[in-house]
């Protein structure tokens, strides 16, 4: 927007401030349908308007990318970031900014050609800040998803000690490459740290196995073997067994057991311990 139009917009915004805010809030409140209090909305709108007025001040031409508009960009980022975290939709966030158009139209009739041309110019700028808002909204959402994925990664890969020299990894949920990698590294490190010659990978909680996941499990077993530890896989569910065979994955000489209990009994015997059930006590 050139300097002249900026000056006109500045005058318009400052002289009709109250009416503008009223219209703006009314437009936006309609779309948000009571999910945000009017007082809160008014505060946000006034904040954006204040920043816009500040950016238009000084007689230079108004552009979103310049240093003059730094404050405006910060306010918009904060607004859209908050909206993203509070679970508002993209439309609802964008409308908060586009409400300014309606408000401008309401306070400045466009019945002559000059006014109309001005309005189109303001409108273009509002589109620009609207796009900016949408972009930061998307960024905030992406950051949210990345955070959650990381939290999921951390919480889902414990390596537990089952017995002297026996550690186990109960895998739960969906295994993707990133998680499989983390599991693999953590398991191998635990083997070294605890000097356990046996590891059990329990996949009872794994909902599906594809070739890649199977490949990762196989690699883990191979790596453990290279380091001098034996791996047993337990808890393969019927569908998964069918998938493994259907995909033609070779588990070859890797020991697989039906349950974690069987696997533990197996490694204890392999480690030289006797596992036996005592005779049932007679009930007198």
């Amino acid at each position: 927007m050139d300097a002249e139009a900026t000056a006109r917009l500045h005058t318009l915004l400052t002289t009709h401030r109250d009416a503008l805010v009223k219209h703006w809030v009314a437009t936006v409140a309609q779309t948000l349908r009571g999910r945000q209090s009017e007082a809160e909305l008014q505060r946000q709108v006034e904040e954006v308007l204040g920043a816009l007025v500040a950016a238009a001040e000084g007689g230079r031409s108004l552009e979103l990318a310049t240093a003059d508009s730094g404050e405006l960009r910060a306010v918009l980022s904060e607004l859209s970031g908050n909206r993203a975290r509070q679970g508002f939709s993209a439309t609802e966030t964008a409308v908060t900014v586009f409400g300014l158009k309606e408000a401008l139209l309401a306070i400045q009739p466009t019945n002559d050609a000059k006014r109309l041309r001005e309005y189109v110019e303001y409108s273009r700028f509002v589109d620009e800040i609207g796009l900016f808002t949408f972009e930061t909204y998307a960024k905030a959402r992406e950051a949210l998803i990345a955070d959650q994925a990381e939290q999921l990664l951390e919480l889902s890969t414990p390596v537990v000690k089952l017995w002297d020299g026996v550690v186990a990894v109960p895998l739960v949920g969906t295994l993707d490459s990133a998680r499989a990698q983390v599991v693999m590294e953590r398991l191998l490190q635990t083997l070294v740290d605890t000097a356990s010659p046996y590891a059990i990978i329990d996949i009872t909680g794994v909902s599906a196995v594809d070739t890649q996941v199977a490949q990762h499990i196989l690699k883990t077993v191979m790596a453990a073997r290279l380091m001098g530890a034996d791996c047993v896989i337990s808890g393969i569910r019927p569908q998964i067994a069918q998938t493994i065979v259907a995909l033609g994955i070779e588990f070859s000489d890797i020991v697989t057991k039906a349950s974690l209990a069987d696997a533990l009994a197996h490694v204890l015997r392999a480690g030289g311990a006797d596992v036996a059930r005592r005779a049932a006590r007679s009930v007198a």
Binding site: M184, L188, A195, M222, A223, L226, M227, G228
Partner: peptide, 27 residues
């Protein structure tokens, strides 16, 4: 053998033919 080394060997498709392994000297 360190975990990172073992992973690399597996990724490279190398298996130490005819070599037995243990986690530490004691084992």
């Amino acid at each position: 053998m360190r975990p990172a080394v073992a992973i690399t060997l597996v990724e490279l498709g190398l298996s130490l033919q005819g070599v037995r392994t243990a986690l530490n000297v004691e084992l």
